[in-house]
Design a protein around this nucleic acid. Structure first.
Lengths: 224, 224, 224, 224
DNA sequence: CATGAATGAGATTTCATTCAT
DNA sequence: TATGAATGAAATCTCATTCAT
């Protein structure tokens, strides 16, 4: 099924113009995620991509542009996915929020993409362009989606009145923690970390916390 | 005019000599926080500390040890402070949690120390020793403090039963977000970000979310 | 539809194939002249010749041989021309010199060939073979031709006795200046430069300068 | 007399901040003159200057700036010299011209500086800034000096009327030839080349060529 | 103690050359 | 014959580290 016949012989030399950029980007994403921009050498990237250093320069003019391409091109195809996912979402605000978190827990948390927030946090100061890109394409959209859902819930009398923007940050923060934890301190901690469970607990607490009515609906109001 | 005449009078010159390491650590903290470990040159650190490169090696054997010293020595004196603060804390679990957040909002959020989480997130993979140190000295303590308070609240019947560890992470996450935001994406966003307000909203939602009883105690039970 | 049908009709496609080496040499001449040997990349040459880098290696074994071929093949066809031109030349020495300069002014000064002296000057040290080739084929012949004419003129009593070799250099030098000026400093100077006028002035001054008799023959001897 | 005691021991490491830039510039001048800008490696320059590559970057930000500095700084101190020399020059135009050529023959022809014209010719296209600098500081001045002297001679009735600008180029050209010959084709030629003799012959021919009166003044006007 | 010129290992980048297609 | 992706050696450039002063 491959483009070239899979012989047992390792070829030192092959032409795969189509596949190369994506392979390089994938390799670079891992490297940058592990050691950061400045800490990554192009030797490492090239080795991981299975090419030589010179080949990198066939596709990217320099290390900086490679880095930007990595962030952009890793993100872009997934943004489509998320947007599609969320547009086909029910009308109920709480349900929409649950849907986003479900998507995050199922499709982001364990994917190679989950390294990107760490990269952004670490390199935003050195790459303003990337910072702004991520802000616009990811953070603003997520924030907008969540704040919109909360606002709607408040208008419909489902949530008590709180600042939707603040609530959006509150909602986002455990996702950030989950994703950063996995890629930084998590591996050094002896306690297991369950991101999905964290998300569940968080949503449970959050929805109770913004509910209009006394929460447990199965509980009888106390007779006076 | 001896160089080390120990009179009662503090001389600016000799004080400087003793202050050097601390000055270097402070300068290095800023540099590392801005550009990461690999992205920081010792020239920059030296310039910001107002000394020359060679001087750094008088106090630190190499760049890596300087980095470790920076994290450790920036953190250590404050750990004392926090622990003292929290030990003299009321018995009520909710109040203890509020006290920690108050301390964080008042004393950490705007201090130079707030860059450390970003540093840790970015460099944990490259500095396991530092990762473990931070995990033990900061994360574990914070997590333990919060989980303990929640567990106590549950036992006392103030909070509904939830996993205290998970709840601790939920509690921690907006602090992390606040502190990272300020040092990475925040400066590129055009919307203002109010960390303290975020913390308030968060605590408000959280406490309602884990409350045992139907929340608004000021609300009259509905007459049957 | 065969690829190599040899009809009497010249096909553009097959003509092209035969023209390739010459096209490459022409393109390379411009490139080398503009940036020198080391400063020229084969990418540039290939692009200007309208082929790809690999194609260059079909015709020339490496960059160095391409360079040598460029100098030799650019020069060779013209040497024939000059020699033919000058062999059919009158017997009068002054006239023969004028004829050479006329040829230079009319046919060399504005041709692409005029870049070669600059190339030779710049690269002689790096390409002894080329230096010797140019010395033998161009410089020696020119010098010989001029020195011979001057010697003849002296013998015939038309010129005053001077060292014919030295005079040959004196004669050559404004041609060199003209040709180098056009290709190096000329383009940066705001004053216009007229090579042909320079040559005229030069010849005028030179012939008066080597004349045996008091020059203006049209001038009446002063009456006592 | 040196700043450091001359021990027999070769020191691998020495501090000579004052001398370094000049040493590097001198070494680089030779290298660039021999192989051109692109053909010169910084390894070679460093080796010839007796330092390591890194040291070059202590004094020059990159190869290009080193090149510019080489041309500028090699020239500048000598420009002073020439101007001083020529300002203290007699009033007679012919004498002033002779003085310039004398200076050139005695002080430039065999100095390391004589490589600069070759460098300029070769690299003008790649370094417009340098081209303009040389044009303004050297060529324009020389041209102006010579054209001025010639104009003065014409006005005074010493020279016959010719275009002073053209004549200036005619005057300059054998100097250019002499200096380029030495550094490019000369070494490959088996005939000896005597630059000073060339200059003498040239001046002799030139002055006769622009003389107003029939040259040999000792010759009696023919009686009618 | 402090300096900062110098180093040299290692990073990024370039480009002549090769070779599967 | 022609291509152009890929190579790899060698170039430029950076910077942590050393050490004479």
């Amino acid at each position: 099924m491959g483009t070239t016949e899979t012989t047992g012989v390792e070829r030192r030399w092959s032409r795969r113009k189509e596949a190369r950029p994506a392979e390089i980007v994938a390799a670079a994403l891992e490297c940058f995620a592990e050691r950061g921009f400045a800490g990554t050498t192009l030797d490492t990237v090239a080795a991981r991509a299975g090419v030589t250093k010179g080949t990198l320069y066939l596709y990217f003019p320099n290390k900086e542009e490679l880095f930007k391409a990595v962030v952009r091109e890793s993100l872009l195809p997934h943004l489509e996915g998320v947007l599609g996912e969320l547009s086909a979402v029910p009308d109920d605000p709480a349900e929409r929020i649950r849907r986003l978190f479900g998507f995050f827990a199922d499709r982001m948390l364990d994917s190679p993409l989950s390294v990107i927030p760490k990269l952004i946090v670490a390199e935003a100061g050195n790459f303003p362009e990337i910072a702004r890109f991520y802000l616009a394409e990811v953070v603003s959209r997520g924030r907008g989606f969540l704040a919109g859902a909360i606002r709607q819930g408040i208008e419909r009398g489902q949530f008590r009145p709180i600042d939707p923007e603040q609530a959006a940050y509150v909602l986002l923060s455990p996702m950030l923690l989950a994703v950063l934890w996995q890629r930084s301190l998590g591996p050094f901690d002896d306690r297991p970390f369950d991101g999905k469970a964290l998300i569940r607990t968080h949503l449970d607490v959050f929805f109770r916390g913004i509910a209009l009515e006394p929460q447990p609906p199965d509980r009888e109001p106390r007779p006076s």
